[in-house]
Design a protein around this nucleic acid. Structure first.
Length: 292
DNA sequence: GCGACTGAGCCGAGAACCAA
DNA sequence: TTGGTTCTCGGCTCAGTCGC
């Protein structure tokens, strides 16, 4: 279990009932899709506005997707979330990762606010669903929770592999992907299926503009079922996030001709370059190895 | 490759309990 | 009193498996 360090929850005074700019409720026109409540999109927008991330991307270490290197690789926490169909837990984790860029890497908010970010407006079932999602993330040591001010829950982010208190990526060579805020602004969090979201993160973690997505290899490295990989890729292509980018040819004894091929994909704007961190990262060797 | 089947586990709803 | 957490229940979805 990871422990929080120097916990400094982001105090959202705007959620106080006496405030006229609360995240909890908004009576203004055009922002509520359930009577008297802020819409899902506006709630997320207001949460992202509080983020300290000036580059509007969320750094997520690749150990969240995959632990280890080369032949010693094994699936990361993403596999657990996908296999146990914890889509809401994944959604909340990504949002927590986006907002906890400041000191303490924690955030204090009403559970009903988090519930709205995943599209649940009923107070009871929303709180229940959020609680279950926090528990799933705590079981993976991805977060810790504590009672914050005004009975709200303080969520503190841990390392992406659950190894301890969170530290931002700093070392040159440390591998991470960058999730753009457009993920929420373009509505991908509602458009994509869980499989699509998983494959989107995996695509963002690729270190080339054009890359293969071999079902068997993705399944082996990231622990997703091949069905999930296939449906995730289809989901991304259907939503115009991933596009075919020709074929890659390689030598193989498995084909009579001695030459095999596999399709290449590329991420479409605005995600196409944002997935390439600036320094210290190289292509994942096994992914580009010919004949795989 | 495809469809049918099965079991695991998530979902919302409701209730009880705990904490501030 | 209010809000969060945890548990139970019935319904439902989906990953995995099997046979064709």
């Amino acid at each position: 279990m990871c422990d929080s360090i120097g916990m400094t929850p982001i105090q959202n005074t705007a959620t106080k009932p006496e405030s006229g700019n609360e995240i909890g409720r908004d009576e203004s026109a055009g922002t509520s899709d359930t009577e008297g409540f802020l819409s899902q999109a506006r709630t997320i927008e207001m949460i992202l506005e509080r983020s300290a991330r000036t580059n509007r991307t969320v750094p997520i270490r690749r150990v969240f997707l995959q632990l280890g290197e080369g032949r010693d690789t094994e699936p990361g926490a993403l596999k657990s979330l996908v296999s146990s169909r914890q889509e809401r837990a994944l959604d909340l984790y990504l949002l927590v990762a986006a907002i906890t860029g400041g000191p303490g890497h924690s955030v204090t908010e009403w559970s009903t606010t988090w519930a709205r970010t995943i599209g649940i407006f009923d107070q009871k079932s929303g709180a229940s669903a959020v609680s279950r999602a926090w528990k799933a993330l705590k079981d993976l040591d991805l977060i810790t929770t504590a009672r914050g001010s005004q009975r709200r829950t303080t969520v503190t982010k841990c390392m992406e592999d659950g190894s301890g208190p969170y530290e931002p990526p700093a070392n040159v060579g440390e591998k991470y992907l960058q999730l753009p805020f457009e993920y929420w602004e373009e509505g991908l969090h509602t458009k994509l299926t869980l499989a699509g979201k998983a494959m989107f993160l995996i695509a963002l973690a690729q270190r080339k503009h054009k890359f293969p997505l071999v079902h068997a290899r993705i399944s082996e490295w990231y622990g997703l079922a091949q069905k999930t990989v296939a449906s995730g890729i289809d989901d991304l292509v259907e939503n115009g996030i991933l596009a075919p980018a020709g074929f890659e040819y390689f030598d193989t004894l498995a084909a009579r001709s001695g030459r095999g091929s596999r399709p290449l994909y590329r991420l479409v704007r605005p995600f196409h370059q944002r997935g390439l961190p600036p320094t210290g990262l190289e292509a994942f060797p096994a992914q580009t190895e010919a004949g795989k």
